[in-house]
Amino acid sequence: MAEDQILRLIPWFFAGIGLLFASIGLAMAKKEMRGRRWHEVEGRIVGHDSHWSSDSDGDRTLMHTATIEYRLAGVTKQIPDSLSTNHPKAVGSIMRVRYNPDDPHDVMIWAPMRNGCFIGLFVGLGSLFALVGGVWIAFTMIG
């Protein structure tokens, strides 16, 4: 009897996990695109914050987070990049900085869909799991 209940819950699990992952992907895409109508200023990489990072196997990699300097209303400011890489971008490289005109303290590095592949995987695989779970649930209810 318990085995039969578990088999009936599996499609719901597939659908639920799929909807969760698709929702996370869509939320990430929305956050990534929030600055599309904000005002833009030019920023430049002025340095890097370097740190060692370890993966689950204990392998260590030197990661670099760029520090971007920009001017807004005559004031020079700095912000860290939201993405760390193991190959630092060149100091002096131009970066696009966008700020919310309603709240100039709300700034972001503008690189639309920088994480597009990652977001696509979340939305795509999440949708696939939700679809498989939904079809499985439909066939279970029919049969």
Rank of each mutant, 00 (worst) to 15 (best):
E3Y: 06
D4G: 01
D4Y: 12
I6V: 13
R8L: 13
R8K: 12
I10N: 06
G18K: 01
L20G: 11
A22H: 05
A22F: 06
G25L: 02
K30G: 12
R34M: 02
R37G: 11
R37M: 11
W38T: 04
H39S: 13
E40R: 08
E40A: 13
E42R: 14
G43Y: 06
R44N: 14
I45N: 09
V46W: 11
V46S: 12
H48N: 07
S54I: 09
D55H: 01
D55L: 00
D59S: 13
T61Q: 09
H64Y: 11
T65S: 09
R71Q: 15
R71G: 15
L72E: 10
V75H: 12
Q78A: 14
D81M: 01
D81K: 03
T85Q: 05
A90C: 04
V91T: 12
I94N: 10
R98L: 03
R98Q: 05
N100K: 07
P101Y: 03
D103S: 08
P104A: 01
P104H: 01
D106P: 02
V107S: 09
M108A: 13
A111G: 11
P112G: 04
P112T: 08
R114T: 13
R114S: 14
N115E: 14
N115W: 03
F118V: 09
F122R: 05
S127P: 00
A130C: 03
V132Y: 05
F139P: 00
F139I: 05
I142H: 08
